[in-house]
Design a protein around this nucleic acid. Structure first.
Lengths: 343, 343
DNA sequence: TTGTATGCGTTATCAT
DNA sequence: ATGATAACGCATACAA
């Protein structure tokens, strides 16, 4: 069924049908209803080839991520974004990448303003700076720019879709893995953060981790250690912590920065003696997985997040399809054994 | 660059350009060469949307899977197929589903012939009957029907893409999970199959499982038990096996049929005492995960496989894009804790 | 041997 | 409030 056929059946012109289909007013209630009925009955599906042909328009999707170097976590979403854009570029999708300094609110705000100035047709955002991200989300809503979040969600803010792992559940799984490993009942949760980091994802992971032991009434002694990478005595504290760890102890680092601690543990010849679970397949972590220092890494599949983010925007902007509002990325467990094979 | 632009540059009409591009003769050598040169230089790419629009042709993708009932494993790929087709149907993609009896070679052959007769524009195949699947793949190559495999690969046969989990690696991961769980050094590998089942995927899983202990020189006692669902004394044997299992023993079932054994273990009040690892999130398995009988299920994400299979074919047939030849599905670990959340 | 004209289905502009 | 029409890029029937 085509628009023309609908028009004939409804005894109106294609122009009117189009106005009805796109809700752009100037149609009497009566004809509107008549057209809609016929559309329903004939379950009309627009021909996307024709639409694409006539629109023949370029859409720009802006992406706003933290600045990153080669092996940084944030290099991976970027990779997925590029691949996805490559796939949909024949539909007129272009990408403009904006980067901000990860823990710098001012910089985020500055770059966010640039993003808005560029008037993109869609925005892919990693909302790691919550306050400001909320503000940006509000701006997007006002300007009717479809917004897709990756990495973490922004509950309460309006968005097209939000793509990421369930942090709480991943923490729970980490707990199960450590518990199953028959480690000592002394478990150390180590937060290795940057100075200004105040990330909800880490909190959720920790919460999930603790909840596992609570829900199963497992008597464990949990010690929490907070380390900030920029602190003057960071390295020293790290060394101390590693010294304190005994054979059979277990450590959970709810972050990709586990390699710092793993480095110390490895240096002290304790690889394989301490159970360690952390996050993310960055090169340094992979290395300590291979040396048996880290037992499990939880993969957030950041490339996939970038990839799916662009896909969502493409489906919405170009195909005008509904998209899933919450997309959960598989919680993939990586061990020394299946590593080669996942990355 | 468009045909019109080429025509202008070459000082001929679009008709002539078209004749050159499609080799339909009636063009002087001279103009032919001139046009071709311009096409080369401007590296002209035809606009697929315009082409599709004028050709106005629908593509049919056939899918050939084992017959299935509601909660069968094979119902899940079908689901993903449907969703994917839904998404691309406005691009003229149609799906015709063919089903065969899972262990019946004759039936497979019969249905496969029907598939070929229908002359589809693409084929999505679950090659569970290797010999015959090989034959079908060869036919597809001959008839130039793009072929995508899901579930398992068909090494050596030519195909557009192959989508599935790395069975060997998943077995290895299962081994690590059981080993980490501090189970007894007595481990039972239980093959629960159908009468004629001779599946390479199971073998690979088992091989990966065993390799873990070998590679790490872990001294374990591995007992292998073979049970066939159709055997008269299947239930009895199952019961015996469950009786023999002691607290702290571990069982690996390289298949979705783990629920049979889990049922017995549960019935004998041994839930939580035996470590059990198996495959696939079918309802029965989920139930025994929730009752603490099964510890880990490895999710093959069958819906995703179906979904990606159709996507691959769509990208190739409609968009003429290159597609990844081997797509690996994440080896997702499911526990009681994260179950709700994955399905 | 070559050029012209028409249509595919949709969108958007302009006239009525 | 509604209709007529041009345009997107390509394929092709038909005219020259």
């Amino acid at each position: 069924m085509t628009i023309k056929e609908i028009a004939e059946k409804a005894e109106v012109s294609v122009g009117t049908v189009d106005r009805v289909l796109h809700n752009r007013g100037d149609v009497s209630k009566k004809t509107r209803e008549k057209v809609l009925r016929i559309v329903q009955e004939g379950n009309y599906e627009p021909n996307l080839f024709a639409r694409q042909l006539v629109l023949n328009k370029a859409f720009t999707i802006a992406s706003l991520l933290p600045k990153h170097r080669k092996d940084d976590y944030w290099a991976y979403p970027e990779q997925g974004i590029r691949q996805s854009v490559e796939e949909v570029k024949s539909f007129g999708i272009r990408n403009q990448s904006f980067l901000f300094e990860e823990e710098n609110e001012q910089d985020f705000e500055k770059v966010a303003k640039k993003v808005l100035q560029s008037r993109p047709d869609g925005l892919l955002l990693a909302p790691v700076i919550y306050e400001k991200a909320r503000w940006l989300a509000a701006q997007c809503e006002q300007e009717r720019i479809p917004l897709v979040l990756i990495d973490s969600d922004l509950p309460g803010s309006s968005k097209l879709a939000s793509i990421g792992q369930n942090a709480y559940q991943s923490g729970k799984l980490a707990a199960k893995l450590l518990h199953f490993s028959g480690s000592n009942p002394d478990i150390c949760v180590t937060n290795i953060t940057h100075r200004n980091e105040n990330n909800d994802v880490f909190k959720q992971r920790k919460k999930g981790f603790l909840s596992y032991f609570e829900e199963h009434s497992i008597p464990v002694q949990i010690k929490e250690v907070n380390l900030k990478v920029e602190d003057g005595n960071f390295k020293k504290q790290l060394g101390k912590l590693a010294v304190a760890l005994q054979e059979g102890d277990a450590v959970f680092v709810p972050d990709s920065k586990i390699h710092w601690l793993a480095g110390e543990v490895h240096a002290q010849g304790k690889s394989g003696k301490i159970r360690m679970v952390g996050y993310d397949l960055i090169e340094k972590n992979k290395y300590y997985l291979q040396t048996n220092t880290i037992d499990f890494l939880i993969n957030q599949k950041p490339e996939l997040q970038g990839y799916l983010g662009i896909q969502s925007l493409y489906k919405f902007i170009v195909l005008k399809q509904q998209v899933q509002e919450r997309v959960f990325i598989p919680i993939e467990i990586v061990t020394k054994e299946n590593l080669e094979f996942i990355s």
